[in-house]
């Protein structure tokens, strides 16, 4: 994963829930189909217009609700490079990191406006707002979890771990 990604900010409010991110009626469908309905109940054009590298901005409690991992996976599928919010629901936070999607807790997330050009340095927890000419320092991801993020997510991390334990190669 590149540390510096630049994209458009898509701003949402508080308590963006998992039913908005991954609507129940599409949970049986393919990930691509599910992702095409991501957030459509509150912003129908989102899934169609987002481009790779864009950043999603939330308020408090981003990802509240179900444990469904597809809530984070749908964002990854759409090419979202990071989610920045004032706070995250805990299962969503874990799911996102486990899937290699950087999620950053940022007090000033509310200062970012929809359409701003944003770049994110996940490792440093640094968010730059090119439109407003400002930057924000986010809470760093705990070191214990950076290991997983740096491996690219929990699966690659576990693969490393299992191959080390089994003395096998990772093919």
């Amino acid at each position: 994963m590149t540390q510096q990604t630049k994209g458009r900010a898509w701003c949402f409010g508080d308590n963006i829930d998992t039913d908005l991110l991954a609507p129940g009626p599409y949970m049986k469908s393919s990930l691509a189909e599910l992702a095409s309905h991501c957030l459509e109940a509150i912003r129908p054009e989102f899934a169609g217009e987002i481009t790779t590298g864009d950043v999603v901005i939330g308020g408090t409690g981003f990802g509240i609700g179900s444990s469904r991992e597809q809530a984070a996976q749908a964002l990854v599928e759409l090419g979202v490079s990071a989610v920045i919010a004032r706070s995250f629901a805990r299962i969503f936070y874990r799911n996102a990191l486990n899937l290699g999607l950087p999620v950053l807790v940022c007090e000033q997330a509310g200062e970012i406006a929809d359409g701003d050009s944003i770049s994110v340095d996940a490792e440093q927890g640094l968010v730059t707002n090119h439109t407003q000419g400002t930057s924000y320092q986010c809470e760093p991801i705990p070191v214990e979890l950076m290991v997983i993020v740096n491996a690219g997510g929990l699966m690659p991390y576990l693969k490393q771990k299992f191959s080390a334990e089994n003395g096998a190669n990772t093919e």
């Binding site: 609700g65 444990s67 991992e69 299962i91 874990r94 799911n95 486990n98 929990l154 699966m155 576990l158």
Partner: peptide, 23 residues
């Protein structure tokens, strides 16, 4: 996500997602 229900029995129980479940 409703795994905390188990807490009614004095169990510490939390919900997790599917990748984490694999782990």
């Amino acid at each position: 996500s409703h795994s905390p229900t188990g807490g009614a029995f004095g169990t510490f129980m939390v919900g997790i997602g599917a990748t984490e479940m694999t782990g």
